[in-house]
Design a protein around this nucleic acid. Structure first.
Lengths: 84, 84
DNA sequence: ATAATATTTAGATATTTGTCTAAATACCTA
DNA sequence: TAGGTATTTAGACAAATATCTAAATATTAT
C-alpha cells in the first residue's frame, strides 16, 4: 500500500498513468509529453513499476509501458474499508 | 487531488484515518496511540485536515477529530476513471 | 564495425518532508 | 488569578525526493 500511495503522490506520475490508460507508450513517447528530462521520466516510470502500476516490455530498442489496473483493486478496497 | 494523495502517502496518517473510522478522537488520544511526539501528530492532523480528510471541533480544552469520508468519493472516482 | 537512436544508471544538488524540543496559546479549576 | 492540562506553533535538522547533466548500455541501420 505504501509503494502504491507513494507512486501516486506525484502529479507527473499520475499524468503518466492517465496517459497509459489510453494506450501503451514507449518511454520516449511518454517523455515527449513533458518538459522534464528523459532520465527524470525514466525514474518516474521506475517508481510506477515498483508499485506495480505499470509493466514494461522491451520491443527492440524501445521499451513499451502498459498500465496495470489490477493493482488498483487493492487501493479501492482500502478506501472502501474507510467508508465502512 | 494533490493534497489528498499527499495526505495518504504516510503510514502514520493512514493509521490515524483508520482509527477515526472507528470513532471520533481527541488530539491527545490519537497521539497516545503512537510513539511519536504530540507536535508531530499535530502536524499530521494538520495535513489530513488540509486534505479535507478529517474535520476538527474544539470541545473545551480538547479538540475532537472526525473522519470525513465524503472526500473519498473524489479519490474513488479518480481511480475508477483509470479502470475505464 | 561505426554511427545513430532509445533508454537507463550514476552522481550531484535543491527542495520537501517528518521528526524533535522548546515555547506559545487556550481552556479549566481551585 | 495562578496553576495545570491540551494542543498548536516555531525553529532546527536529518532523511527522502525530484530534478538535472554526463555517461553507460542496448539495439538498429549503414
Amino acid at each position: 500500500m505504501n509503494a502504491l500511495f507513494k507512486a501516486l503522490n506525484d502529479e507527473t506520475r499520475r499524468q503518466i498513468v492517465e496517459m497509459l490508460k489510453e494506450r501503451d507508450m514507449n518511454a520516449g513517447e511518454i517523455a515527449d509529453q513533458f518538459k522534464m528530462s528523459k532520465p527524470s521520466i525514466s525514474h518516474h516510470l521506475d517508481i510506477l513499476k515498483r508499485a506495480d502500476l505499470i509493466t514494461s516490455e522491451k520491443k527492440g530498442q524501445f521499451v513499451a509501458y502498459s498500465l496495470n489496473t489490477s493493482i488498483l483493486e487493492d487501493l479501492i478496497n482500502w478506501i472502501l474499508t474507510l467508508k465502512k
